[in-house]
């Protein structure tokens, strides 16, 4: 059972007010518990939580490089195994460290089958370096390296389907979660750390600074992502999708218009074709995962 009162991520960290990643860390650690060793990749979370000597972590924690967290975790796990120790190994890495620069190490570690849980806090761009696009950046999002302009609507490619890639490695447990649903997130992390083998939890963690919204909106926006079908919460046990979060469908526009990164789709002129293209992606998600709750008409 998740102990909700457990605080393993301390006050005094330097995340922006309303930071989705900080909340993700705090909630994930409640799910993981005290008997955990955290391996953190380079990124926002690493930086805002550990300027020497002010660590925010109350569990053993290690940061080595940007791309190698899963290899470091492989070594930690092998060492614990050899010493017959019982700590759980949890990786915390951003989407850049996961979708892009860490892919080789991730593939190797999942293929080898180490016993760890990989938590990707997904804020859909390189936030630590100033909001550059990553393989997790959604279609049409404007970032500093995929800026919207006279001949561009921003990021040209849809988000990489990382959970499927991980599942293809034979991971016993893969899940997506959102900070908008804290209990679900904590339970998924708890399940992952208690499942033997390499598990993966990808957590949608909106970034007020990078996406362009006020900090108090972080959860509301995370929730809209789920309700519009642009983020799907599900579990995959041994490669089979289950427990998909069902929602009453909202148009993607409601989500897009809340964030500056999509502002060019509405101003100076409304880009109907682009919004329709994004709606089509959401529609495909609704169909693929069967998540729509149909309300009975009065």
């Amino acid at each position: 059972m998740v102990d909700k009162s457990l605080e393993l991520f301390e006050c005094g960290h330097r995340a922006c007010g309303g930071c989705g990643a900080a909340l993700a860390a705090r909630l994930a650690m409640k799910g993981a518990g005290t008997n955990t060793i955290v391996v953190n990749s380079t990124g926002c979370m690493e930086v805002f939580s550990t300027p020497y000597p002010e660590t925010a972590w109350k569990v053993p924690w290690i940061h080595s490089l940007f791309e190698n967290a899963s290899a470091v975790a492989s070594g930690v796990e092998a060492s614990l195994k050899k010493q017959r120790r019982g700590e759980k190994v949890v990786i915390m890495a951003g989407d850049g460290a996961t979708f892009d620069i860490g892919m080789i190490c991730i593939s190797g570690a999942f293929e080898r089958g180490h016993d760890f849980t990989y938590i990707c806090y997904d804020n859909e761009a390189y936030m630590n370096t100033g909001i550059q696009r990553s393989g997790a950046t959604p279609y049409d999002a404007s970032t500093t390296t995929s800026p919207a302009g006279k001949c561009s609507f921003g990021n040209k490619r849809p988000k990489k389907d990382m959970p499927q890639i991980i599942a293809a490695h034979g991971a016993p447990y893969v899940a997506t979660a959102s900070i908008a649903y804290p209990a679900d997130l904590m339970q998924k992390v708890e399940r992952a750390v208690n499942t033997k083998g390499p598990c993966y939890v990808q957590v949608h963690a909106p970034c007020c600074t990078g996406w362009g919204f006020e900090g108090e909106q972080t959860l509301a926006i995370a929730k809209l992502a789920v309700e519009t079908g642009l983020w799907i919460n599900y579990e995959m046990v041994d490669g089979k999708v289950s427990k998909v979060k069902k929602v009453v469908k909202k148009p993607v526009e409601e989500y897009l218009k809340t964030q500056k990164r999509f502002r060019h789709l509405f101003k100076p002129a409304r880009q109907d074709a682009e919004i329709a293209a994004i709606q089509a992606m959401a529609d495909r998600n609704f169909e693929k995962y069967g998540i729509e709750i149909k309300l009975k008409k009065e």
Partner: peptide
């Protein structure tokens, strides 16, 4: 890179 990274993790773990 992973060879040395795994050594880093294992060494830090004792």
């Amino acid at each position: 890179l992973s060879a040395l990274s795994a050594c880093i993790g294992a060494s830090a773990a004792g």
